[in-house]
Amino acid sequence: MTAEPASRTTSRFRPTGSTGAPHSGGRRPPGASPRPRSFLRRLRDQFGIYLFLLPAVAYLCVFTVYALIRGVMLSVTATRLVNPDGGRYVGAENFQYLIASDPFWHSVVTTLLYTGFTVIAVVLLGTAAAVALDARFFGRSVVRAIATIPWAIPTIAASLIFAWIYNDQQGILGQGTRALGLGQPGWLTDPDWGLFSVTVATVWKAFPLAMLVMLAALQSVPHELKEAAWIDGATRWQTFRAVTLPHLAPTIRVLTLLMTIWSIRRFEIIYVMTGGGPIDATNTLVVSIYNTAFADQHLGRAAAIGVLALGLSLTVTMIYFVVERRRERKGES
């Protein structure tokens, strides 16, 4: 057995894969057939390498792997917050309870809606802003700085600002819509509007990172190709579709994956603005884990929600890598 399977696994998690490139080899030139060596010999040779990894890996083993295992174990117990170590084993009871409960399914739908809208809006707005700010114009650096600030602002500050803008009595947004004769919904107090308001705040906070990443990616689009399209009489939109977009596609896909994963687990901006309310309107899975654990004090049930939320993230990631692999194969053949 050679190290080949391991490295192939790695390349799956690094979309444009650096495996096979000269800099990732080190031990032997890529493509050369490995000298037959015994497993133990190789392991001994590699001992020094493992020493480099040991601190970080051991750390993660304690604080995420072990904690995750404990979390999964908690999910099959009836543990309460007052006695976190003394939960009775109840098998799949927590999961059965959740599957039969309407608030849980409401929470799943809320998570999907929140994630879907956030990701679509962030990727579209981020890409559009990047394209707009890639062109040269007077004052571009100032505009770029302003558009970057939401990314730099701590989430807690963003949550406080939006809570104030959305405020029912003195909030500027309600005053504005009232002055325009549009009426004033309770942005954070009306269950029909809560999720929308929280999503807008999230998009505000998250789109600049997408914009910056897309701006960086735009630099890799060869100028000659764009010019060639120009000369052939393509319109701007056609040039964008045919030349720019294909170059951005891999970045857009990775960005979509990361934004999705981050949205599924995003907690703070929602929790600080609404705490999951009004009437559960913004109670995403992650917020409901927290409320179940620390308000309802059901640690076991909270862990069960967490396991299901993690399953959702894993599913999304798996879909991404399956699609990416299929695409890679298509590109190769």
Partner: peptide
């Protein structure tokens, strides 16, 4: 670790 909801880890931690 980028997928793991902190809220899940926080209970055992």
């Amino acid at each position: 670790t980028q997928m793991l909801p902190e809220a899940l880890i926080i209970v055992p931690l």
